[in-house]
Simulated assay, not measured.
Amino acid sequence: MPTIVSQGRSGVSGIPLPPVPNVLVLGGTTEASALAEALAARGLSATLSYAGRVERPRAQPVPVRIGGFGGVTGLQRHLRENRVTHLVDATHPFAATMSAHALAAARNGGVPHLRLTRPAWRAQAGDRWRHVADIEAAVAALAGPPRRVMLALGRMHVGAFAAQPQHHYLLRFVDRADLAPVLPHHDLVVDRGPFTAAADLDLLREHAIDIVVCKNAGGSGAQAKLVAARELGLPVLMIDRPADPGGKAVHRVDEVMDWLDHGAHRGV
């Protein structure tokens, strides 16, 4: 990947102006893609970084890198060597380790840092949510007689539910897995969101789902299953978000662009 170099500028009075932004976006979310489009439309130098869990990520209007950095030290080195002027963490709300590393590397390297994150979902009238703290608690909550369970979690955590093999699971992945899921009874749907409430309503009915298990990812792209579950009166095991990693956070792309224009140079 070519190294993008940002150079300082001098005003008419000789006072240095803020450097031309060279933005590193930690992505993998719909919001990260939307930010990449906004940065490209503005003509700003930017790179979008994926962790590498999706085999065929969407085409992007900015350069893309795939893979980890090697912890805080590796990310800090990347920021320095590529002369990154701004770091935007637009990772999934459950990517707690990456968010913590991003904040630490930015602070250590003196690089302005901002999180672009989705507001968490909140239960509405008619929802039957049971909150659990993590994947292990969700697995434990499924103890009991066989049911038909939609695991709306992606493929990373599916293996944990082999501890409750009595259920028939519905899985929905962005990519088809190289290895078959370890669950003895399951159906696999390969599809990429955003999804509609009408389509998810049909999906839950078709598979006669009794309960939905999901993370509180927030946003609109994955909310359809919750609307469908509400319509059918189904219970939802809602896995709560990890602790907030800290740092300044916003919820909209235009807020990031405003930060790049003004707030970051004020040390926000």
Rank of each mutant, 00 (worst) to 15 (best):
Met1Trp: 13
Thr3Met: 14
Thr3Cys: 11
Arg9Phe: 14
Pro18Glu: 13
Pro21His: 12
Pro21Gln: 09
Asn22Arg: 02
Val23His: 06
Leu24Arg: 02
Gly27Pro: 00
Gly27Glu: 02
Ala32Trp: 01
Ser33Thr: 05
Ala34Glu: 13
Leu35Arg: 00
Ala36Met: 04
Ala36Val: 03
Ala36His: 06
Glu37Ser: 08
Ala40Asn: 08
Arg42Cys: 07
Gly43Cys: 06
Gly43Arg: 05
Gly52Asn: 03
Pro57Ala: 06
Val62Pro: 03
Gly67Met: 12
Gly68Val: 04
Phe69Met: 06
Phe69Asn: 05
Val72Ala: 14
Val72Tyr: 11
Leu79Gly: 05
Glu81Cys: 03
Asn82Leu: 07
Val84Phe: 10
Thr85Gly: 03
Val88Thr: 01
Val88Ser: 00
His92Asn: 09
Phe94Asn: 02
Ala95Val: 03
Met98Leu: 15
Ala102Arg: 00
Ala104Pro: 00
Asn108Ala: 14
Gly109Lys: 04
Gly109Asp: 07
Gly109Met: 10
Val111Tyr: 13
Ala120Lys: 07
Gln124Lys: 10
Ala125Gln: 14
His131Leu: 14
Ala140Trp: 13
Ala140Asp: 15
Gly144Phe: 15
Pro145Ile: 09
Arg148Tyr: 12
Leu151Trp: 08
Leu151Asp: 08
Leu151Gln: 07
Ala152Trp: 14
Met156Ala: 15
Leu171Gln: 07
Leu171Pro: 01
Phe173Val: 04
Phe173Asn: 09
Ala180Gly: 04
Val182Met: 13
Pro184His: 14
His186Trp: 10
Val190His: 10
Gly193His: 05
Ala197Val: 09
Ala199Asp: 15
Leu204Asn: 02
Arg205Trp: 11
Ala208Cys: 09
Ala208Asp: 15
Asp210Gly: 04
Val213Asp: 08
Val213Pro: 01
Cys214Ile: 03
Asn216Leu: 12
Gly221Pro: 00
Gln223Met: 12
Lys225Phe: 13
Leu226Met: 13
Leu226Cys: 07
Ala228Val: 01
Glu231Ala: 15
Leu232Ile: 08
Leu234Pro: 07
Val236Arg: 08
Val236Glu: 13
Leu237Ser: 06
Ile239Val: 10
Asp244Met: 01
Asp244Asn: 00
Ala249Asp: 03
Asp254Met: 04
Glu255Ile: 01
Leu260Thr: 03
Asp261Leu: 10
His262Leu: 11
Ala264Arg: 08
Arg266Gln: 15
Val268Met: 13
